[in-house]
Nucleic acid binder design. Structure first.
Length: 502
RNA sequence: GGUCCAUUCGUCUAGUGGUUAGGACGUCAGGUUUUCAUCCUGUUAACAGGGGUUCGAUUCCCCUAUGGACUACCA
């Protein structure tokens, strides 16, 4: 098998969508699996859609994901440049080559003329196609007198180069994921290969670059499938061996139909982009939402591909080892934000406590709390199983840092009895005289007292929790009071008694 | 409209010409717990429809339906 070389070829028109990230990931995994090379090529042949910052965003997003580019703008490589606008001079000669061969021709029709033809056709219920059936009636080097079009050329009249699609010919081609496909050229149109602005279109640039960059496998989104026949024809016209193709299924909206878009994320509160997009209409990112890149990548990898085993948690290395194109599904995958959270939870609970503590310390700082890292370790161990994100730890631990401002009415109704204040007073004095304020120490003392007095464990502990936490939630009481300390514990009992009273 | 692609629990999916159609997320229930959560156990629920082929089709073929992509001098 010849050397595997794959490329991820986004166009820098905005933030990279997670569908794009998945395409990059599958390319990367395939390269790693086969010992091949992963290349990043920027397809910026559309000057009108250029977006400032998009290229940097793409590179940063891949880095965050742990997808390492081997050849690209920053990395260099023997097949550069890797930005199509920097390869501008390359394309024209190939377009000309096709014209010389008779597989392409010059066309002088203006956008307005073509738009008019299209709308007229539509009114008549037909579809306008620029192809063998219509090209003779249009303005091009096939229909016009050679003197006429040569003059247009020498006058530098606006002109594009179109591919001359055969009248009717079945094109057979193979897709690694979808198998054999047949399309008749009669349904295809004479696509523009070279624009009047001096830039190639995607179709030409793509074929030329993939050939020049020795790409062995083209792994891209399903939206490219309809243009594959054209690409196959192009390879044929150039006399080049075509790479192998794999068209990945789309990522769909979580609800309803259609492909995943930014709006879905906004509507349902989950990110559609890996990183925060800071320009123009901003968009939130997985990174900023608190997702770990490993979890994000793991989740994405399993959306459309499966290992054929029941393993769900994979490191990047394991993914690369297990990956294969023939285990990629054919149908679109609906994205499930809930499962994305679950993946993050899996990674979070496996993180070393010290790391989580460091992360949470930053969070606390921004909320005005400065807590010793050792104490945070203890805290994290108490609650990490309960959260999916570090930022969620706060919701589970706020009462560790401040006494309750109010007390859950439902719990008061259920747990606050006639004798409760007296019992809590007893408990207060017991704790006050307990020197060993470790969880084990207070637990032993309190349980012995409850037993001795014949109290009901649930009644006492729930009332106790109410004055300490303010609600019916949180880790074990003795862990809580040990962490907040004796002074705070006693003060919260006092505060609770006077607030709830009776 | 035309071309192409797709269709297994709500979701991601496994799977085979003969299976109790398996797993995960979610849901629900029970258990554990001083509470909530976790956790454990269990439950739930699927082969789009119709024709073939076949002794037998979820699996192979055809049609229909539904969904999707594409249909630009955008990628």
């Amino acid at each position: 098998m010849s050397q595997v070389r794959v490329r991820f070829a986004p166009s820098p028109t905005g933030p990279l969508h997670i569908g794009g990230v998945r395409t990059a990931l599958y390319n990367y995994l395939f390269a790693k699996k086969t010992g091949g090379t992963f290349i990043l090529r920027i397809e910026d042949t559309d000057q009108a859609r250029f977006v400032e910052g998009a290229e940097e965003y793409i590179m940063e997003a891949l880095k965050w994901c742990g997808i390492k580019v081997e050849e690209g703008i920053e990395e260099g490589g023997s097949c550069g440049p890797y930005r199509q606008s920097d390869r501008k001079e390359i394309y024209r000669q190939y377009a000309d080559l096709l014209v010389e061969k008779g597989d392409a021709y010059y066309a002088f029709d203006t956008t307005e003329e073509l738009d008019y033809l299209r709308s007229e056709s539509e009114k008549a219920g037909n579809t306008f196609i620029y192809n063998a059936g219509t090209r003779d009636k249009l303005n091009n080097s096939l229909s016009l007198d050679s003197a006429v079009w040569n003059k247009k050329l020498s006058d530098h009249e606006a002109c594009v180069i179109r591919y001359k699609m055969p009248l009717s010919e079945d094109i057979h081609f193979n897709d690694i994921i979808r198998g054999n496909i047949v399309v008749n050229t009669g349904t295809l149109d004479d696509k523009v290969l070279f624009k009047s602005d001096g830039m190639p279109t995607y179709h030409l640039a793509n074929i030329v670059d993939d050939h020049l960059m020795l790409i062995s496998h083209v792994i891209r989104g399903e939206e490219w499938l309809p243009s594959l026949p054209l690409h196959i024809m192009l390879y044929r016209s150039f006399g080049w061996d075509a790479p192998l193709f794999a068209h990945l299924p789309l990522l769909l909206k979580p609800d309803g139909k259609g492909k995943l878009s930014k709006r879905d994320g906004d509507k349902m509160g989950f990110p559609v982009f890996p990183l925060f997009w800071p320009y123009g209409e901003t968009a939130k990112g997985y990174r900023e939402e608190g997702y770990y890149p490993e979890a994000f990548v793991n989740m994405l990898a399993l959306l459309g591909w499966n290992p054929g085993t029941e393993q769900e948690i994979f490191t990047m290395e394991e993914l690369a080892e297990a990956f294969s194109l023939d285990r990629v599904g054919k149908s679109g995958s609906r994205f499930d934000p809930e499962k994305a959270k679950w993946f993050n939870h899996q990674y979070l609970i496996k993180k070393p406590v010290e790391e989580l503590a460091m992360e949470f310390r930053e969070f606390l700082r921004s909320h005005g709390y400065h807590i010793d890292i050792i104490r945070l370790d203890i805290l994290i161990n108490l609650v990490k199983e309960r959260v999916s994100f570090v930022k969620d730890i706060w919701d589970q631990t706020d009462f560790f840092f401040k006494a309750p401002d109010n007390y859950d009415q439902e719990v008061i109704k259920k747990r606050w009895k006639e004798e409760t204040p007296a019992t809590l007073l007893e408990l207060r004095s017991l704790l006050s005289s307990t020197d060993d304020f470790t969880p084990a120490g207070t637990e032993a003392a309190v349980k012995a007292w409850i037993e001795e007095k014949g109290y009901n464990m649930g009644a006492v502990m729930n009332a106790f929790r109410l004055v300490i936490v303010g609600a019916s939630r949180g880790p074990h009481m003795f862990d809580i009071i040990s962490w907040i300390g004796k002074t705070e514990t006693l003060s919260r009992i006092d505060k609770g008694l006077s607030a709830i009273g009776r």
